[in-house]
Design a protein around this nucleic acid. Structure first.
Lengths: 279, 279
DNA sequence: TGCAACTCCTTATGGCATAAAGTAATCTCT
DNA sequence: AGAGATTACTTTATGCCATAAGGAGTTGCA
C-alpha cells in the first residue's frame, strides 16, 4: 500500500508542515478550548503505525488512542494523506543531522546509510510513503542537506551528486523494505520465516520434481547457503537482507569511488600536473 | 493429521502457480460448465491493474470485466492475495529469458536492467507486490535464472552474486517506482509534474523565506538544473528518475566491476604474492 | 429420476475515508 | 447579562472494500 501526498490545499499543507504561526487550531479564541493539537495527533498516529503498521493506521484508531472519535481529527488535519505527510516529516527529525568528515566521505556515507537503515526498521511505515512527489517538509530538507554535505566531499558536480543521492536512497530503502515486509508477513500470518521457507521449499520440490534441472543457476546459488552463527536468532530473510545491505553498500561505494577518481583525473589532468589523488 | 498454519493454503497456491494438472476447476465433471478459468481471471485482473492501478483492483472490478459479480471469482481463486500472486507470476513471463554474453556481463546486465525497467513501467502494480517472501512461481524463477546466467560470467562466488542480485533489484525497482508513482500522482490529482513543482516551490519560497540560507547544499544542488531538450515532453520527475537510473546503474556496475577485479586478484594470487590491490 | 457436485448470485458483516448535520461549549459584542 | 458567532466534537449516512454464508439453478452420474 503506497500512500500518496495529500492533494488538498497546497498552501494549508505547507503551513502545517513548516508550522507557520497563524495556521494552528487556535485562531479566533471563540469556541470551546481545543482538546487536541496537530502535534498530539501526529504523535499518536506515529505510535499506531509503529505498533501495528500502516495498514492499521485509520482515523478511528488514531482518534481512539486520544479518547476521541475518528472524525474529531478532521478539525485539526484536512485528511488522512496530510496526516501521513506530517507523520513522515516528524519522524524524519530523528535522523542525525551531521557526520564526521575527518576520514573522508566514504565512512560518513556508510554511517549515514546505517542510521537511515535503522530509522526505516524503527518506522517501517515510512517506506510506504510515496517518494515521487516529495513531501517537502523541513526535516526532509534537513535530511537531504545532511547527505549533500557529505557528498560534497566527493568533489563530484551537482548533476552527478543528484543521481548518487537517488541511487543511495533506492538502495537503502529497498534493502530495508525486505526486512520490514518479512516482519510484517511473519506477524500477519503467524508463521515465522524459517517455517515458511521450509514449508514452501518442501512443497516446491514436491510440485516441481525437476526443479533443479530446470533451474541450474538457482541450484548453484542455493548450494552456497551458509549456516547462521550459533547465537544468531535473526530470522533468515532478515539476515539475508542485512548481508545484501552491507555487501551492496560496499559495491555502491566502490562505484562512487570510481566516479570520483574519474572526475578527479578529468579535473586535475587538463592543466597537466599528473594527478595521483588518493591511495 | 495436524495442519500447520497456512500449509493447506500453501499447497493450493503452489498448485495454482505451477499449473499442476488436477488442480483446475474441472475435476469431477458434475455441475454446470465453468464459464471462467483462472487464466481468464488473471488476464482480466492484469488488465484492470494496468489500466487503473493496484488501488483500483477489486474483486468486483475484475468480475465486472468478465460479466460476473465479484464473488464469482472465489470459485476459481481462494482470495485476492492469491490472485495478485498469480498476476505477478504471469506478468513476469513477458521478460526476456536470455541475454547475449559475447561482450561480457556488463552490457548484458545493462540490457537486463533496461528490460526490467520497462517491464515495471508497463506494469506499475508489480512494484507493489511484496518482495520479502517471494511468490515462488515458475516465472519468478525463470527471471532469477536469467539474471544468474549473466552474473555467473563475473566469476564471483555464489555468496556475492546473491547480494549483487538483491542490490540490482533494489535499485531498478526503486528507480522505476519514482516514475510509476509520479504518474499515478499526476492522474490521481489531475495535476501534472511541472505544475505541481511550480506551485510547491513558489509556496515554499513564500512560507520559508530564508530557505536558501537554511539549506545551502540544497541550493547548490538546484543551481544545476539543466533545461530539458526542446523536443522532450517527458514530465520532469520522470526525466529525473530516468537519469538516476542511467547514472546509478553505471555506478553500480562500476562497483561490481571493482568486486570482480578484486576477486580475480584474490584468486590469482592466493599463494601469498603480496597482492597489490588495484592500481 | 434423483441426488451430488458444481457455478454463480444475493445478502450479510464489519471495515475504511469522509461528507453533512447536529450538540454543546465558549468567546465577543451589545 | 444576554445573544449570536464560532468552534470542538459527535452522530449519522454514503459508498467503497474483502469475504463469509447460504441459496438458486445447472449438469452428469448412479
Amino acid at each position: 500500500m503506497v500512500v500518496f501526498a495529500g492533494q488538498g490545499d497546497a498552501r494549508r499543507s505547507m503551513s502545517l508542515l513548516w508550522r507557520v504561526p497563524g495556521s494552528g487550531a487556535a485562531r479566533g479564541g471563540r469556541g470551546p478550548k481545543p482538546g487536541l493539537s496537530v502535534d498530539v495527533i501526529v504523535d499518536a498516529a506515529i505510535a499506531v503505525a509503529d505498533a501495528d503498521g500502516m495498514a492499521a493506521l485509520s482515523m478511528r484508531a488514531v482518534g481512539e488512542r486520544l479518547g476521541r472519535t475518528g472524525m474529531a481529527l478532521y478539525t485539526y488535519v484536512p485528511n488522512k494523506g496530510e496526516l501521513v505527510d506530517l507523520m513522515y516529516d516528524r519522524a524524519l527529525a530523528e535522523l542525525p543531522a551531521d557526520y564526521d568528515l575527518e576520514a573522508g566521505w566514504r565512512p560518513a556515507v556508510t554511517s549515514w546509510a546505517e542510521d537511515t537503515w535503522e530509522f526505516y526498521l524503527r518506522h517501517p511505515w515510512v517506506l510506504q510513503v510515496s517518494q515521487a512527489r516529495p513531501v517537502l517538509g523541513p526535516n526532509e530538507y534537513v535530511m537531504l542537506e545532511t547527505l549533500l554535505a557529505i557528498l560534497r566531499e566527493t568533489g563530484l558536480d551537482a548533476a552527478v551528486v543528484r543521481r548518487v543521492v537517488g541511487t543511495l536512497f533506492h538502495f537503502v530503502r529497498g534493502a530495508a523494505q525486505t526486512v520490514t515486509e518479512s516482519r510484517e508477513a511473519a506477524t500477519a500470518t503467524g508463521v515465522p520465516d524459517e517455517e515458511w521457507w521450509q514449508t514452501r521449499s518442501a512443497l516446491l520440490r514436491e510440485v516441481v520434481p525437476d526443479f533443479f534441472t530446470r533451474f541450474p543457476m538457482v541450484a548453484w546459488l542455493e548450494s552456497d547457503t551458509a549456516p547462521p552463527a550459533e547465537d544468531d536468532a535473526t530470522p533468515f530473510l532478515e539476515r539475508e537482507a542485512r548481508r545484501t545491505f552491507e555487501v551492496g553498500l560496499d559495491i555502491l561505494l566502490d562505484g562512487i569511488h570510481a566516479a570520483v577518481r574519474r572526475a578527479g583525473v578529468a579535473v586535475l589532468s587538463p592543466a597537466g600536473s599528473a594527478a595521483g589523488r588518493e591511495e
